[in-house]
């Protein structure tokens, strides 16, 4: 058990959420769109509740927060009542600054990604949308790095193969 002062925990919570808040917002926006601010609020509430377990090393703390985000995303169901007071201001800002127009191509690409299955889809999106290394993704998924490398290879092959079919979007 670590014996950090409560004020120290509070400052670390504010530091880490201040730093990765924008990253978390984009992480959820890319995947679920307009409910993203509410999911960010839920991550922050969970991080605060579990702050005693927040890793001391910065990069580990960052990945730990993304692990919470990942778990919340897996339990996310669209349409559920998530209108948190905490996220009201951010929701308003996001809805003003972002126009959620999905092109047919974007929808088709996401369909391709979803068809990979959750594990492979997560590897390619965390790699190319968030810029995570395969080693970091391995920690998030709780599997050996070799497994993630294999998942990336399979996902890549499947996506490139799908692109050669008539129904897939073409690379411009």
């Amino acid at each position: 058990m670590r014996g950090r002062a409560r004020d120290g925990d509070e400052q670390r919570f504010l530091d880490i959420t201040g730093e990765i808040g924008p990253e978390l917002l984009r992480y959820f926006q890319r995947r679920i769109g307009s409910d993203a601010p509410d999911l960010v609020a839920e991550v922050m509430v969970t991080v605060w509740r579990k702050r005693a377990l927040l890793p001391l090393e910065h990069e580990h703390a960052r990945m730990w927060c993304f692990g919470i985000a990942r778990n919340l995303l897996r339990n996310y169901s669209r349409g559920e009542q998530r209108r948190s007071e905490l996220s009201r201001a951010l929701r308003a800002t996001v809805s003003v600054t972002d126009v959620e127009l999905d092109s047919e191509e974007a929808v088709a690409i996401r369909d391709l990604i979803y068809q990979l299955g959750p594990d492979l889809a997560e590897v390619v999106t965390l790699t190319h949308w968030e810029g995570f290394s395969l080693a970091e993704i391995a920690r998030l998924q709780g599997v050996p790095a070799a497994t993630v490398r294999g998942r990336y290879r399979r996902a890549r092959l499947a996506l490139l193969a799908a692109l050669s079919t008539d129904v897939a979007p073409t690379l411009l």
Partner: peptide, 11 residues
């Protein structure tokens, strides 16, 4: 490049 075109817009 392909995957970037599949992501929803971000802030």
């Amino acid at each position: 490049a392909l995957l970037a075109r599949g992501a929803r817009p971000t802030t």
